[in-house]
């Protein structure tokens, strides 16, 4: 574990050094490929510009996740309690996965405008599927002997949901959420590319147009740090909630 971490760190370092060396040696102009050191510098010195955009993107992702949870949790519970609902809904769920969701981005911008709403929905749509499916999977995975035990105690469906199925499905839920937060970032940024006035995606498009490639890279750096941070956050949350594993 520790060792593989060092290896990957060393690998990154080698890539950065080669990159830096190449740029300097061949005097690659900044508007084609800036050096890593320049990117790092601008990422730090232009914090006052980057931070508000990052905050907007983060807000979009967060709201997207919340919106998605508000729909996917009840839907998973309903699909679980009524197999007929599952039968009716799952073809649509699967079909929705075969549509490239990114293709929806221009439509969402037309319908919901250049503001934050279209990006929130974009992020929500993307993470909706992994969360619903993993939660349903978790409910279904609950051991049948446990269900029998609860029945003998006289527990109805909602009591079983609260005391048995829900805690049982939590590890699945978090697995889905972890996939979700990483892809939600992509969703929000693509929404911003298509049309927006704020956000890291907007900053990338703007900077690109002005050949400020260093700023594009800085936005990417911020974006990946944000994604990493959220992934870590979910991990911490998971460890706090699931103490029995």
């Amino acid at each position: 574990m520790m060792r593989s971490r060092w290896v990957s760190l060393a690998l990154i370092l080698v890539i950065l050094i080669v990159w830096e060396g190449y740029c300097r040696l061949f005097q690659v102009p900044d508007y084609i490929l800036p050096t890593p050191s320049a990117i790092l510098e601008i990422s730090v010195t232009r914090t006052s510009l980057l931070l508000p955009h990052a905050a907007v993107t983060a807000l979009e992702i967060l709201l997207g996740i919340l919106l998605s949870l508000m729909v996917s949790i009840p839907l998973a519970v309903m699909m679980f309690s009524h197999p007929s609902i599952e039968e009716a809904v799952s073809p649509f769920l699967v079909a929705s996965q075969s549509i490239p969701v990114f293709a929806l981005a221009p439509l969402l911008v037309i319908w919901l405008g250049y503001g934050i709403a279209s990006k929130v929905l974009m992020a929500a749509i993307i993470i909706f599927f992994p969360i619903t499916v993993s939660l349903l999977e978790g409910f279904k995975n609950c051991g049948s002997e446990y269900v029998v035990l609860f029945r003998l105690m006289g527990a109805g469906f909602w009591t079983r949901m609260r005391l048995l199925y829900w805690p049982w499905a939590l590890p699945y839920f978090f697995a889905g959420l972890k996939v979700g937060v990483t892809v939600a970032t992509i969703g929000a940024v693509i929404g911003e590319w298509v049309g927006s006035q704020q956000g890291l995606g907007y900053l990338m498009i703007q900077s690109n147009a002005r050949l400020r490639v260093d700023m594009v890279f800085a936005a990417i750096l911020w974006l990946s740090l944000m994604g990493l941070g959220m992934w870590k956050l979910v991990n911490v949350l998971e460890r706090r909630v699931i103490r029995w594993k």
Binding site: G143, Y146, P167, R243
Partner: peptide, 16 residues
Amino acid sequence: CGVASYMQQKDLLLPW
């Protein structure tokens, strides 16, 4: 169902 309690080979304790 309302009269008997039931115990099996597996303890069926909830891990959480």
